[in-house]
Structure formats: structure tokens, C-alpha cells
Design a protein around this nucleic acid. Sequence first.
DNA 1: TAGGAAATCTAACGACGTTAGGAAAGTGAT
DNA 2: ATCACTTTCCTAACGTCGTTAGATTTCCTA
Lengths: 189, 189
Amino acid sequence: MRLLESEGAAALTIRRIAADMDYTAPIVYQHFANKDALVLELVVRGYDQLLAELRRAGEASDIDGRIVRVAAQYVHFAGEHPHLYQAMNGTVTDADERRRAAAPAIDLLTELLDAWSHTHGVTLSDQSDACEILWGTLHGMAALGYLDTVGTERAQRLAEQACRTILLGWRATGSASGLRAGSSPKSGT
Amino acid sequence: MRLLESEGAAALTIRRIAADMDYTAPIVYQHFANKDALVLELVVRGYDQLLAELRRAGEASDIDGRIVRVAAQYVHFAGEHPHLYQAMNGTVTDADERRRAAAPAIDLLTELLDAWSHTHGVTLSDQSDACEILWGTLHGMAALGYLDTVGTERAQRLAEQACRTILLGWRATGSASGLRAGSSPKSGT
DNA sequence: TAGGAAATCTAACGACGTTAGGAAAGTGAT
DNA sequence: ATCACTTTCCTAACGTCGTTAGATTTCCTA
């Protein structure tokens, strides 16, 4: 993990891992069936850490603030651990195992959305759809952060903004009718 | 390109590329400085094709429909060309070059958003922020499509839904006041 | 037809993931 | 202390990768 985070995926070599512990390459295969299994372990631990940080960020009082702060923390994590995050979402470990590793974090989002819809009296058309949208958006903003033209801090801001916008949009759809294209937006029931 | 799309990035080998054209490996280096440059060329062509498809999808009449259809087409492209799309967003080609390749497609989004805000009389707090959010969201939904639990069709639907929700949210923020919160304390702009 | 230029191949280097088989080191009983 | 046995670790190798140097072939021109 130390090697991955400090020198990137390209440096994460079986021989290099072994050498950093004063061993030779074959020793690694006594602990992992192959390199993919090793990377998967790193990915799982990455999601564990991410989950812990998201939980801590979701301890605010009001539900909207909690969601927004979780979103910001997600992008912050991606910015702090770029190589790890890219391994967590890369093509080395297949999609199914990644999803399984991410499940608890997604559950956290589901809980937050549940509380949110309950608090605001908004029934989302599909709870699971809403969760996926939020999850996907966070990943999208995190990916933006790696572009030189965006950067982590702005990506974090964008995540908060996107989050607030989506929540607002859901409240608008939830409250039926809502906006009118003209000039005076009356908020209908 | 044919090899990448049909057999994936793992099969995209210099020797394999050469063999498929009845040549040997060194010949490839007369056309590309190294493998990264070759992959970059594929990425650029991928963005060209994506841009063309997005343009075609953005020919509907009403502006909201155009944006939503572009969003769906983006995710559709990612689903139709998974290996190419993953190369376009992978870590092999660095972020700066990817951004440059994606620029025209992002410009298209900017134009659409411009027309949208003009049509609805909504002035977005930051045009460029809005564009990045939309762009990032599309990527997020596309990434979701690769999960077994989501799939391309649902990801496409989610993209349309996320798109509509965000637009609705922007109209709500743009029209000030908008919804009455009822009780929730929310952070201002 | 000879000679130079262009095109292409063979062979190799170092590094990779991975495996097989042997050396070394500890452990227990005699 | 010596033997057998198990555990631990390393050396050596295989095939593949990206990449480069040098030889070889092919082709055009004078």
C-alpha cells in the first residue's frame, strides 16, 4: 500500500514489493495467489478507509449538510490518494469485485438518502436509482479532480455544488409541477 | 483500433498489432514513437468519434431534449466501446493530453448549456463550473454502466435522469427562492 | 547491372508475472 | 551430536512485454 500510494501503479511490481521487505519475488506468492489478488486486497482496504472517512464526514447535524460533506470528503479522498483511488476504479480488478468492495460505502449513501427523503417528505421515484446517481456523480467529480485544469480543491467544490443541485432537483421533482419557464417561479405544492 | 475494441487493452500489444498486419514489431516504431503515443492516437480518434455522435444526438429541437439526448448518447458510446472508452479515461495517457482531446466535446456541452441558460433565462453562477459538473456526471454514469449490477441501458436511463435533475436544480437555484424548505436550514450560496 | 537508399527482419536487452526445484535453517528424537 | 523432517527462502528459468541495434532483404536509379 505504501509503495502504491507513494510511487504509483507502475512501480507496484512483485519484485519491488518483495525487495522493499528484503525478500525475493516468490515469497509474495505465499501470501497472494497472484498480482490481481494482491491489488484486490489493496482495493478492499482502500474502500475500508474511504468508508471510515465518509462516515466521519457524515456526522454533521442537518441531513443536507451531511450529504454535502460526505460528497466533499469522497472527492477529497480521491485527491489525497490518487493512485489508490485509480486502482479502486481501474480495470485491473474486475467490476464485480469492485462493486462488492464498494457496497458498504454505497449503503452509507443509501442511508443518507433515506434520511434525506424522510426529512424533506420527498419520495424519490426510485431510491436505488437516486443512490446510483449520487454515487456516479461523486466518481465523476473525483475523476475531474485529476485534470490539471480542475484540481482537487475545485473538484471538491464542484462535488458539493453538484450534490446540492441534485438534491434541489429532487425536491423540485418531488414537489410535482414546480418551476415554470416564464419569469415568476411559483413553488407549487 | 479494431484490436483494442475487439480484444481489450490487454491484447493491445506492439507485437500483436504488427502481426495483425503481417509485420514485425519494430515496424510499429516507424509510425509511433512508443506505445503511449499509439494509444494516445486511439484516444484522440475515440474522442473524435464521440464528438460526432454527440453532435448528431444534439440535433433535437428543444434545448432540454438536446442536452438529455446528448447525455444518453455519451453513456451509450461508453457502453458500445468499453475498451476504447476506458482507454480514453484510463491512466495510460496522462490527464493533460486527455483533456486536450476531450476539449471539443466539452465545448459542445458548453454551447448547449449556453443555449439552455439563454432559453430559460437562467444565469448560472459559473458557466464553466456547470459544464464541468455536467461533464463529470456523464463520466460518472458511464462508469456505472460497467458494473454488472447496473449495465449500459440502466446507466443510460440514469444519465438522462441525472441530467434532468441537475437542469431542474439549476433552474431552481437560478430562479432564486424556488422551493420553500419548510423547516430545513440550508447553507446559502 | 552495380550501388545506394529504403524497407523490413532477426536478435537481443532489461523488466515483468509466475513457477519449479534446490539450498539453508530450524526442530525433534535418538 | 547426528539424523531425518519440515519450514523458509532463494536461484534459475520460462514466456511475454516494450524497445533498440544491426543485419538483411528489396527496390529504385544511374
